[in-house]
Each structure stands twice: as C-alpha cells, then as structure tokens.
C-alpha cells in the first residue's frame, strides 16, 4: 500500500529550469506514465523521485513521508535504467541478489528470493549467466527482477525498452503491465512513445518544457486534451490556426462553432472525426492521397483555401484519389492562449 505525492517539486540546473514547480499524486498500485518529448524533464523528475537528483524545491512524499533529502540507498524506490545498468562482472544471480546481500540476508534466503524473481520474469534457467551472455530483452528482464526482488514501494522505469525493437518492446510492455498488476506495485514509467503510454498507463502525465501539461487517463488525454501541446502530441490531429469572427470560424469550407471574442484561435480536430461526403467537381476538398492501413484509410484532402485535412475512415468508405468531397466535422476543440475555450462533442 504505497502512494506517491509530489508537491511543488522544481529543479534548477544552474540557471536552467529543468522543472517548473509541479504537483502529481499517484495512488496505490497505480501505473502512471510520464510522457513527453526528449528534454521535457521526464528523467529529471524520475531521478528526483529515485533520489539521484535533489529537487531545488518541493516535497516528495512516499506514504506521506517526505524523502526529498533521503539518498537513494535509503529510499523505498527501485529504478530500471534505460541502459539496464547491470553489473557486468556479476552473474545474473549476483545482480539480483546484490541488494539482498547488502541487507544481510542469509544465503539460502537470498537464493530462494532470487529464484522467485527470476521465475517472475521468465528467466529461471539464466541465473548462472553473465549479462554479456543475454539478449537486450533478457537484460531488461533481469534489471526488472533486480528491482522487484527488493519489494520496493515505488517502481521507477526510465524508457526501459527504448533500445529494443518494436516487437520485443510490445511484448515486454505487456509483461511489465501484468507483473505490475499482479504485485499491485505503484509505478512511474517514463516514455516518449505515445503508443507505449496509451497502452500501459492507468494515467498519463504529459510533460513539456519542464511542466506537466495534463494528467489523465489515456481516454481523457486523447479525447479531452487541455492544451494545444497535448492535443498535438498525442495521436494524429488537425491543428489549424484561424480567426474567429462573430462566434464562428471558417476553415477549408467548414464552419466551426466558436462562441468567444473575435481574434486568433487554434482549432483541433481528430482525423477520425472528419467525414467526407461526395460533392461536385471543384467543390469542397480534393483528395490528394489515400494510404491503406488495412482496417482504416488515412486520407489527405486539400480545400480550396489551401487548408489540408487529415482524415481517417473505415476502409469500406468509397473515396478515390483526385475526387472532390465535402468535409463535415463531428467534434472539435477551440484553443486560445493555450487553454480550451470551447469544445463541441456530441457524445
């Protein structure tokens, strides 16, 4: 039963603010992904939780106790590093058992725990090997076992599968998810891959330039982005600059509801929320390109005013390249000053 709370945590490297003061609460047994582009401060935040960086300000509360000034060896956290960071001069067993040895456990007890941890990650036969004799995926499994064997309160993972190929990454991600569920261990998982975050997380914290832009379930983040950054970063999105006049904006032949003061605004539309209806030649938008993804078609259509629509439809919708279609939009979001001003969502 462990919770993690960050209160006003900030980090300054010299004059550069790597993290603006931020807050985040993670419930017991929850898996939260820190998702953001490279350099957005994900690793810095994770390292602050793990004790490898001191926050410039703020509190890191694990089960209510502030550990912001506690060194990593005294924290109930365990970290899986991107480079796996296994100790090459020790065997797999040696790696996993090292923390237990430091805690002064008896040999048979260590052996039993190491064995259980190895079986948990599906490497029961590999205890006597050295890390150099393992594949990339197996090494990360050992790194995970090395953490779990210590029964930490919080599990931290920093892009653990970034160096693996797509197929292996998907599989390990599922395994991690299952193990995490089974043990009910509170987990913070850093990634810059939205697919990874969307598929594994209970909640996602989207980060950009040292700030947490939004925290929410994958569905919330996808359907209700709170900032243009989140809207553009997760999933495909039509992001269109426009000028609102009289409570509406006109883009690519589509009229958007925008009940607000006149002026600049940003309108965001998901490709799957655009429908194309056949129209007469020269009217509406002309289809430039169709890419068949099997289950869906991804279409690019250019309107007379130059606006380009990204459209996604089911594959049995009859659309041809070069044809003219009238786009209709079922959902849209209007942003101004980086905030949501209006949202049309019939569901």
């Amino acid at each position: 039963m462990s919770t993690l709370e960050l209160e006003n945590v900030s980090k300054q490297f010299g004059t550069m603010a790597a993290l603006e003061p931020l807050a985040l609460r993670i419930a017991d047994g929850e898996l939260v992904c820190l998702l953001g582009p490279s350099g957005s401060g994900k690793s810095t935040l994770l390292r602050i939780i793990g004790g490898f960086e001191m926050p410039t300000g703020g509190k890191v509360l694990i089960d209510g106790a502030d550990v912001a000034r506690t060194p990593p060896e005294k924290r109930p956290t365990a970290m899986v590093f991107q480079s796996h960071a296994l100790w090459g001069h020790m065997t797999v067993e040696g790696n996993i058992g090292f923390g237990l040895k430091l805690r002064g456990l008896k040999k048979p007890e260590i052996a039993a725990k190491v064995d259980a941890a190895l079986r948990l990650v599906g490497l029961a036969e590999y205890g006597k090997r050295h890390p150099a004799q393992l594949s990339g995926g197996q090494r990360q499994r050992v790194a995970i076992a090395r953490c779990l064997v210590l029964e930490p309160k919080i599990l931290l993972m920093d892009e653990p599968f970034a160096s693996l190929d797509q197929h292996l990454r998907d599989r390990l991600r599922e395994e991690v998810r299952q193990i995490q569920r089974k043990l009910g261990i509170t987990t913070v998982f850093v990634t810059h891959g939205q697919d990874e975050a969307l598929s594994i997380a209970d909640r996602i914290a989207v980060m950009s330039m040292g700030r947490i832009e939004q925290v929410g379930t994958p569905a919330e983040i996808y359907t209700h982005p709170q900032t243009p950054f989140v809207a553009g970063f997760i999933g495909d999105m039509n992001m269109m600059k426009t000028t609102v006049q009289g409570g509406a904006a006109l883009i690519g032949g589509v009229r958007f509801d925008a009940p607000m003061a006149d002026g600049e605004a940003l309108i965001a539309v998901r490709p799957e929320d655009v429908t194309l209806m056949p129209s007469r030649d020269g009217e509406g938008a002309r289809v430039r390109r169709i890419v068949n993804y099997g289950a869906v078609l991804k279409i690019e259509a250019e309107a007379a005013d130059g606006a380009v629509w990204k459209v996604q439809t089911l594959k049995d919708v009859p659309v041809t390249e070069g044809g003219f279609y009238r786009p209709t939009v079922s959902r849209h979001i209007v942003f101004r000053d980086d905030r949501v001003v209006h949202r049309v969502d019939p569901t």
């Binding site: 004790g51 060896e73 365990a78 970290m79 590093f81 960071a85 100790w87 001069h89 210590l150």
Partner: peptide, 29 residues
C-alpha cells in the same frame, strides 16, 4: 565505469563505499 551502473548500486542499497568496492573497482580492475 558507467554512472548508471553506480547509481543502480546505490538504488539497491549500497553506500558510497560499497558502490566503490563492489561496482566501480571491479569494473575498473
């Protein structure tokens, strides 16, 4: 010697001296 290797040792409970004794020194040996 990789920093992450040393940090991983801290992470599982090694003091600064133990990190040196069990990770840094053997790696550089």
């Amino acid at each position: 010697v990789s920093r992450e290797m040393e940090e991983a040792a801290r992470d599982v409970g090694a003091s600064a001296w133990q990190v040196f004794r069990y990770v840094t020194l053997p790696q550089a040996f």
